[in-house]
Every structure is written in structure tokens, then in C-alpha cells.
Nucleic acid binder design. Structure first.
Length: 415
DNA sequence: CCTCCACTGGAAACCTAGGCTC
DNA sequence: GAGCCTAGGTTTCCAGTGGAGG
């Protein structure tokens, strides 16, 4: 049998042999369904806020907030795609640009992305932000269109007080447009986000506000049921499994995204073992798998130095009961760099990396005062050591350090 | 009550990669 | 192709911190 034949067998089996899915895309969280259960109120309100666009009037900027998986993005996409379609019918020159700020990463990349949705060419680096903004503005003026810019996860752009220049510029862009306008829909998971904003930006960005409450277990159940109807073949899903997905996700602040992930992964597990239906057992396995995968993914995509810092922490904490402290971690980190011929970063930088890892939940770092013995951070792994060795097993350089025995490790007595 | 350790974390300077203009 | 500019990452510098131990 040739390689091509083997592949044909695999593909055929995939195409015909599935016992579970009718349409798996329905369970992806970027899928926008025909109906959004339990979000009528928000759809109605947001619809009313953007409706003036159909007659060419400037819409108010809207600030949408609520926790992850409460339907913010889905509602925004739903409402705005309807707006665009309706505008197409009536001939209103409305256009919607959707940007995920966290995925974009920086101010510059958000702007560049924005330009790309307008087919304006910008290099991925090298230009001044102001220049990119100018190009965006020029294309707006040239096209004479009304624009709704959706900035999903805007909080990712403003981590410190005072770096809200991009938002400031965007909220002011209308002043320099003749004829067109830009309306901003800002979406944030972080309820405290507003505190970091310049009052001028805040008042301009949140001319209107829309709050999304977490879903209740019953509501999650309805959402899952609606999707499941088109995602699964008849009888491929047992009702208790669906209940369990809803209950588990409700336990985690009513996160619909989580619920959908659970259902999808559970179904994939069931399919892989060619089970006839998705059971509660599959859901439980899925819960574990999602957590493991998320950690593994985060670990693999870490920059080299962060990995070494993690290893240093691991090496120390596997040799003492107490958590490691910054000085020790840095000492061992430098040793590991030395062994692998990697130029070490400074302690200040490593301390910054530790903070980043702490935010990601991979490390637990806590500032402690040891009195006479100074002020430092106690650092512990936030994940099982096994996750480390698994994730790094493909990288010879890093994995070889897992069994290294640190020399410089002068532990003093800590109260 | 005072000292002083071992850092923390803010701020600014510095470095690098990449695009722009001429 | 030189000389300029910027964003993002890193280093350098340093004031600030809070409690054990004297």
C-alpha cells in the first residue's frame, strides 16, 4: 500500500466513519450561531446603540464588559454582522473592523491589524505608530465610509496607567475626519480596567456601557443544547454529559466558552475511541485534558530564559521544603545558563520574568519580608513538575537540565 | 527603638531589528 | 546604501521596604 493509499484510508475513515459529529465547527467558540440564548437583552441594547449607523449618524462609543465566556464577543459579532448586512441592503456605507487586542499584542500591531482590515498595507514593524494611524485615517477619508471598530480584550492594551495613547488617538480620530466617523466598541474582561484609563479616554470610550453577567447553569445548558443539536449526530450525546458540561462550567464563573470546549473535547475523545456516544466519563476526561493542554501549550511557547527560570525554581524546590527565593533562583539560573552556554539575563530582568510567570499561573511568587534577611520573593512552581518534564521533553537543551544538580545553592535558615 | 539585609520595582538609558527617505 | 526613526526587549541605576535581631 502506498503512502497515498494509507492517507486515503485515514481520510475516508475521517469522512465517513465519524459516529459523533455532524458538524464540529459549531462547537468552536469563534462560531457565531443563528441565535444566542439568554442574551436577548444585550443584543437588543447593542443593536439600538449601533442602529443610527444605518442612517449615517455617528454611533456612540460603547464599552462592553463582563467575564470571559459571558457572550460579549459573540453578541458583538452577531449584532455587527447583522448591521453590516442590513447596511449592505440599504446602501449605507458602514464597515466593521474586528480586532483582538490581546492576540495583536501591542499598540502598533493593533493599528497594523486595523489597517489590514482596510486593505491598507503596513509592514509588521518599522513604522511609527503615528504614521500607521495617519495611513488608517487617510484610507477612511478616501473611502468615505462609516466605521465600527471592535476592540476585543482592550484591557490587554492598557496594563499601566498612562499607556492609553492608542485609545486616546482613536477616540479623537473623528475630529479630523470630514464626512465619515469611527465608532468604537471596546470589550473587556477586566472590570477594573476603567481605573487605568485617562478620564478623557474613559468618558469618550464609555459613552454607553453594556454589562454581561455570567451564565447560570441552566442557561449554559440551553446554550449547549442549541449547539449540540446541529453539532452532533442523533443519539451521539447523552443528556447527563451535557448537564455535566453545564454544571462544571457554571462552577467556573459561568463561562460558556469553557462549556463549549468541554463538550467539544469530550466529543473528540469519544470519537477517537470510536464510542457510540459522549458520556459523562468523556466530559471528566476532557476537563483534565483541557487543563493539561493549556499548561503544556503555555510552557512550550515560553521564551528560552523563562524556561530556564522555571527549571531553576524546580531544581531548588525539589531539594528543599521551603519555597525558593529570588537570590537562589537567580544563582541556579546563572549556573544553568553557564552549563548551556547561554548568556544570562540580569537579576532585574529575571525578576520581571518571574512576575510574568506568576501572572500566567505557572509560578507562584509572593513578596515576603525576612527581617534581618531582607525582602525577597518566595517562588514556587504553580504546576506539577511532571508537566515541566513532559513539555520540555522535545527540547534536548532544556530537558537535559531537568536532572542537573545545582552547586551554588547556599541556603540560609529562614523563619 | 534602630539597623540593615536582600531584595523589589519604577524610571531611564541602551540595544537591536526593521522600515522609511533621499 | 547611508542615515534616520520607532517599537520592544533588556540593562543600569537606585530609592524604598518592613521586620528579625541587636
Amino acid at each position: 500500500m502506498s503512502s497515498g493509499d494509507i492517507l486515503d484510508v485515514v481520510f475516508d475513515r475521517f469522512l465517513s466513519g465519524t459516529t459523533i459529529f455532524a458538524n464540529r465547527d459549531v462547537l468552536r467558540h469563534d462560531y457565531v450561531p443563528q441565535a444566542l440564548p439568554h442574551r436577548d437583552e444585550q443584543i437588543h441594547k447593542l443593536g439600538a446603540m449601533v442602529a443610527p449607523a444605518l442612517t449615517g449618524s455617528k454611533i456612540s462609543n460603547v464599552f462592553v464588559y463582563g467575564k470571559t465566556g459571558t457572550g460579549k464577543t459573540a453578541v458583538a459579532r452577531f449584532v455587527l454582522s447583522h448591521l453590516e448586512r442590513r447596511a449592505g441592503d440599504t446602501g449605507a456605507p458602514v464597515r466593521v473592523s474586528y480586532i483582538n487586542c490581546r492576540l495583536a499584542g501591542t499598540n502598533y500591531r493593533v493599528l497594523a491589524e486595523l489597517c489590514r482590515t482596510w486593505s491598507v498595507n503596513v509592514p509588521f514593524t518599522g513604522l511609527a505608530s503615528g504614521e500607521v494611524l495617519d495611513r488608517f485615517r487617510d484610507s477612511l477619508i478616501a473611502s468615505k465610509r462609516f466605521t465600527v471598530v471592535v476592540l476585543d480584550e482592550v484591557d490587554a492594551l492598557v496594563k499601566h496607567q498612562g499607556d492609553d495613547t492608542l485609545l486616546y488617538e482613536l477616540t479623537r480620530i473623528n475630529e479630523s475626519l470630514r464626512g465619515g466617523w469611527v465608532g468604537i466598541v471596546g470589550i473587556s474582561n477586566d472590570l477594573h480596567f476603567k481605573e487605568y484609563l485617562d478620564p478623557r479616554v474613559l468618558s469618550s470610550l464609555s459613552e454607553e456601557e453594556l454589562l454581561f453577567r455570567p451564565y447560570l447553569a441552566d442557561e449554559l445548558y440551553d446554550i449547549l443544547l442549541a449547539r449540540a443539536k446541529s453539532a452532533f449526530l442523533p443519539n451521539a450525546l447523552l443528556e447527563p454529559a451535557l448537564r455535566l458540561c453545564a454544571a462544571l462550567a457554571a462552577g467556573e464563573h459561568g463561562d460558556a466558552r469553557r462549556a463549549l470546549d468541554l463538550l467539544r473535547v469530550a466529543a473528540e475523545l469519544a470519537e477517537r475511541e470510536t464510542a457510540k456516544a459522549v458520556t459523562e466519563e468523556h466530559v471528566r476526561l476532557a476537563q483534565q485534558k483541557i487543563d493539561d493542554d493549556r499548561v503544556a501549550e503555555a510552557l512550550k511557547s515560553l521564551p528560552l530564559h523563562s524556561k530556564v527560570v522555571l527549571l531553576a525554581t524546580h531544581l531548588i524546590s525539589s531539594r528543599t521544603q521551603e519555597g525558593a527565593i529570588t537570590g537562589d533562583v537567580y544563582g541556579v539560573y546563572k549556573e544553568l545558563c553557564d552549563v548551556t552556554k547561554v548568556e544570562p539575563l540580569t537579576q532585574r530582568r529575571v525578576s520581571g520574568l518571574v512576575n510574568e510567570l506568576d501572572v500566567m499561573g505557572i509560578l507562584n511568587a509572593r513578596v515576603v519580608n525576612l527581617g534581618r534577611y531582607g525582602r525577597t520573593k518566595k517562588i514556587r512552581l504553580g504546576i506539577p513538575p511532571k508537566a515541566l518534564s513532559d513539555a520540555f521533553s522535545h527540547e534536548t537543551l532544556v530537558s537535559s537540565l531537568m536532572s542537573y544538580t545545582p552547586k551554588s545553592f547556599h541556603r540560609r535558615r529562614i523563619a
